[in-house]
Design a binder for these strands. Structure first.
Lengths: 115, 115
DNA sequence: GAGATAACTAACCTAGTGGTTTAATACAGA
DNA sequence: TCTGTATTAAACCACTAGGTTAGTTATCTC
């Protein structure tokens, strides 16, 4: 895997188990055991997922006795949001009519539909 | 690996070459050769990246003679935006985190912070 | 100190990814 | 029909990812 930050974040999010972990953490800190409970897989597997999330900056871990509670860190998602914003016009329905209009008046544009 | 749509989209976006291809396509349709030109890698490698993007629904391909022009399809990004929106309060400083957090606790939604 | 509990590491397996080279396919034009 | 161009397919390789089991470390409690 390429290790530029955005790629790491996208890669971390490309797994439903890890997204479920983030969803759980969005409701508050949780221990590894608590996070692993809903899944069929073993604890080391969950531990690996957590390491992926941690390397992407999406979670942080503190230490309380033998527990290492995980906390959601949303900051990397800002990069995703910024990347996504550049493409908003390609998926946001409220732009559809504008796109149609531009397509209409730009028929035959050699550089493409929206150059 | 996982074949749920959102995972496929995130996975497709987790590669800088593929994101660069999307950036290029955001300025209009392009042939495979044109898309491959900025990269060091061989043409079959680019062709594979395009296949990944196509399976994720992020591009479509038409046929004009021996050319297979690619076009950006933004629809799958809406799913990303919706997923991301649920976490906005964790990265957008303009949100009042405590209020949102309390709202979510009261809803007791198990699937995510705001879904 | 002796368990019990929480979490991690190590070693391993299978399958997938990203790249290559070489060969095949599809089409345009002379 | 032959040739050049655009693109994909096949076979292969090194590396990574996601999972397992078994063993280790850290800490609490008795």
């Amino acid at each position: 895997m390429t290790h530029d930050p955005l790629s790491q974040v996208f890669s971390a999010l490309a797994d439903p188990t890890r997204r479920a972990i983030l969803a759980r953490l969005s409701r508050g800190e949780a221990s590894v055991n608590a996070l692993a409970e809903p899944f069929e897989m073993t604890l080391p597997a969950v531990s690996k997922h957590l390491k992926v999330l941690e390397k992407a900056g999406l979670i942080s871990r503190s230490r309380t006795a033998q527990w290492r509670p995980c906390r959601l860190e949303g900051a990397p998602l800002r990069g995703v949001a910024e990347w996504l914003e550049a493409y908003r016009k390609f998926w946001d329905g409220s732009f559809d009519r504008l796109d149609d209009y531009l397509d209409d008046i730009q028929k035959g544009d050699p550089d493409g539909p929206r150059s």
